[in-house]
Design a protein around this nucleic acid. Structure first.
Lengths: 346, 346
DNA sequence: AGTAAATATCGAACCGGTTCGATTGATTCG
DNA sequence: CGAATCAATCGAACCGGTTCGATATTTACT
């Protein structure tokens, strides 16, 4: 009867029960080959009998390293992030790591607080989707004794690995697709200014338009803040113009959500009245009519790479120094939906 | 210049810099009133100067308790769980706790492995959406020196707090709604057999039908496993019957997803040909035509209650014993959508 | 047989905090 | 003035592991 009284068995308990010194008991787990077969057997069965599980905090205290990684993200409700987290957890688990997650809700203060806690917990590495981007923010991160891998949001000036989408390529695919269909007046509901992905996606569109000899007028670029409500409002404005765009590219899935709602609210039809294309999949997009043309991210692969890189660095003796920062800009997949079609003849 | 060399400042560093014993430095943080104003000032400024953050693992080792809670869930991709996690994190953070998340993917083996790691990490409490339900499973959980709060899935025989939906009420609302519309032949795409929510939801429907003097024939109850693909397949079967149901109630949002896809795949219209109602919201349901009538869970409130109860128990001196288990069955909200209408006259 | 090398085990120190009893110096009071 | 009280600080032990040098026992070799 392995009855528990709330207390945990310690290695001393195991040692005592097996009649050996605690150092020997310790060796039995960490280097079984250094212990006689007989002793090993006694220790292991003693451990089993009292339900011994090593105290990871004690181990970490001694070794200075633990099996925890941090995962900080701005919004856990976006299923995109749920998918990432899932893949991160899976890859971490394979190497015996647990994942501490935290949501910043886009608040730099909260983010600071979270990082402070991470530091206290002696988390040596974290994957983060940053919500800031100024020099001071980067400076703060640099000063922390922690190895980061940035995900999605690249941080200029931070010497750490980065895994993200090839954002320019993603919007280029969307833009080219719309241009090929015959669109000339394309609007963009952009992401939060200052954030890297927002900038890259905007620039990618501008680039592609420019190569085609077309302008991307300033008044057709609006700020949807990567959120649904602002994007809804901005889409309303765009579509109510005397000369509305014939197509809209949204910066991410929540923006697309807002834009599509606006199209419907105005009684317009998509794609007949306006085409819609977006970076990122919409959750359960196969039920949404029309299905929105988008560039999908290889989320699992990206999360696996980010986790792999992070754990690789954590395994190195001299922390993360030595190896230069690596960058992976993954190739998105264009998923054509019914939301894009040639513009209506005027 | 607070330059970091990768190493962490310790309380001894602080003490040395402030010219006091490390016990005094410790007191300065834990009981500032027991230290002279002058000393306090010196210690605090020394701490600030070298960027001291207490080593939580050392603190935990000594005190036997840490500021971590576990959160184990079967699938992190369902945004429903993302919302829960977000709320749990927020409530935990308010009391200085971090959340370790893990995904079981419905595998009992993985779940066991996760709990083992939790135990090693000396996590004293966890919120869990269990994926098992047999006696052995419950026995295993009971034997762990950990306080649980079950979420969604109630576990019979496990003496712990539970927060979940009033499942019977939820399906009663849906069933009554359909009955009031005139439906008589109602099918149910049920959840994984053995799971509590699946059973409760099924029984709730049976109950309500029975009160109305109507049968719920066995062949109209199928197993959708709480997943989209099986639900899709089962819905196809149901609707291809010679005498198809005029309405379907699905056990959760992913099931509704599959069912709605099936309706479309068959070229049927919802609600004209068949009505659809579901427990749980569909993500971005406002874009899905027709909007599925459902019972929405007060997710934030539920997560807040679960976290509150857990932390409350963890704060008690004698672990969780003493207070009897509590149960909260929250009242869902019926959200009417376009997916339900009176049955077509035959 | 005698010594060297290999094997198995042990004891003690250490990781970075907290806590408690002891010590010191200042203050109060009979 | 000397004893008792109190405030401030200190040193040492402890939490549960790991690790390393020391010790005891066995095996190998000349």
């Amino acid at each position: 009867m392995t009855r528990r009284t709330g207390k945990h068995a310690t290695i001393s308990d195991v040692a005592q029960r097996a009649g050996v010194a605690k150092s020997t008991a310790s060796l039995s787990f960490s280097a079984p080959e250094r212990v006689s077969a007989d002793t090993l057997e006694r220790v292991l069965s003693a451990a089993r009998a009292i339900g011994y599980a090593p105290n990871a905090m004690a181990q970490s205290l001694k070794s200075g390293r633990n099996k925890l990684i941090g995962f900080m993200v701005s919004d856990m409700r976006n299923p995109h992030n749920g998918s990432i987290l899932r893949a991160v957890q899976e890859n971490a688990a394979q190497q015996g790591f647990l994942v501490i997650t935290a949501t910043s809700d886009d608040s730099p203060d909260r983010e600071r607080e979270i990082l402070r806690r991470f530091q206290s917990m002696r988390i040596r590495g974290a994957i983060l989707t940053a919500s800031g981007n100024d020099a001071q923010y980067v400076e703060e991160l640099t000063s922390l004794p922690m190895t980061f891998v940035t995900f999605d949001q690249h941080l200029d000036g931070l010497a750490c690995d980065h895994v993200g989408l090839d954002n320019r390529l993603a919007v280029r695919m969307l833009t080219r697709h719309l241009l090929d269909l015959g669109h000339r007046r394309i609007a963009h509901i952009a992401g939060t200014p200052g954030l890297w992905t927002a900038r890259e996606r905007l620039e990618g569109i501008r680039e592609t338009m420019s190569e085609a000899g077309l302008p991307l007028p300033d008044d057709l670029v609006v700020n949807g803040q990567f959120r649904s409500e602002p994007s809804y409002a901005q889409a309303l404005h765009l579509l109510n113009r005397p000369e509305p765009p014939t197509a809209i590219i949204t910066a991410n899935n929540t923006s697309a959500h807002g834009a599509l709602k606006a199209v419907r609210a105005l009684g317009l039809r998509c794609p007949e009245d306006v085409s819609l294309a977006s970076v990122d999949n919409l959750p359960w997009s196969d039920l949404i009519e029309p299905r929105v043309t988008c560039t999908a991210q290889p989320v699992s692969k990206m999360a696996a790479k980010a986790t792999g890189w992070l754990l690789e660095r954590l395994a190195l003796p001299g922390a993360d120094t030595g190896q230069p920062p690596r960058e992976a800009f993954m190739v998105p997949e264009l998923e054509l939906g019914g939301s894009t079609a040639p513009p209506r003849a005027r």
